[in-house]
């Protein structure tokens, strides 16, 4: 249990998706102008990541990994090169599915998400969650915790960046730096902060 908790903390803070691994930066920067939008994005990310990573784990182990077809008399079959296409398909399908469920049963939440849900299909952080799961050969429980942790880490980071950007909207910046430029500098400063988590993890 403590091991899983440690993995959760690592995925959420030490290996923070946008600030340490530079994943999902496009949406991270584009949707962090308003706090409400940022929180919506964070919740959607958490939901999609914690569904797709375990699902992709099942598909990878059951169908694609080397030797997965041994029961059918094909022990040498290695389909792992297909994993990219399979993962993208699973992600697109689960995003679509999530959208349909929300639309049918929770219309208020669906309206709050607006356009973010379909956008998540091409979010690099979500695909990366599944690719990391394969690269680090997590078990099913570990991959579920990893997906949840990464999503929470993303949500925390994007909500914080949005809060700081709102706070700075009245600041008198040089013309070229306002908007995207200052967002990068802020992300850099936050990344410095998150680097201290890595130090804490290393010190243990």
């Amino acid at each position: 249990m403590t091991e899983l908790w440690g993995l959760f903390l690592m995925a959420a803070f030490v290996d923070n998706m946008p600030l340490t691994l530079f994943l999902g930066l496009c949406t991270f920067l584009a949707l962090s102008k308003r706090p409400e939008a940022a929180v919506g994005l964070g919740v959607a990310m958490t939901g999609v990541l914690s569904v797709t990573v375990p699902l992709n784990h099942l598909i990878y182990v059951g169908l694609l990994a080397p030797g997965a077809w041994a029961w059918a008399g094909l022990p040498d079959l290695d389909l792992s090169y297909l994993s990219l296409i399979a993962f993208i398909g699973v992600i697109a399908a689960s995003v679509q599915f999530l959208e349909m469920i929300l639309d049918r049963f929770f219309p208020a939440i669906h309206a709050a998400f607006g356009v973010f849900l379909p956008l998540l299909t091409v979010q690099c952080a979500i695909l990366a969650g599944s690719l990391f799961m394969v690269e680090r050969s997590y078990t099913l429980a570990q991959s579920a915790v990893f997906g949840l942790g990464s999503g929470v880490g993303f949500a925390v980071a994007v909500a914080m960046l949005a809060a700081i950007r709102t706070r700075l909207s009245y600041a008198d910046l040089p013309a070229g730096l306002s908007g995207l430029g200052i967002a990068f500098v802020l992300a850099g400063l936050m990344s410095l902060g998150f680097a201290s988590f890595a130090q804490m993890a290393a010190a243990q």
Partner: peptide
């Protein structure tokens, strides 16, 4: 990681100036 953000931020600033 942080330096990459700073460098790209400065680059954006330069191009936009």
């Amino acid at each position: 990681a942080p330096s990459a953000f700073f460098l790209l931020g400065l680059l954006v600033w330069t191009v936009r100036s």
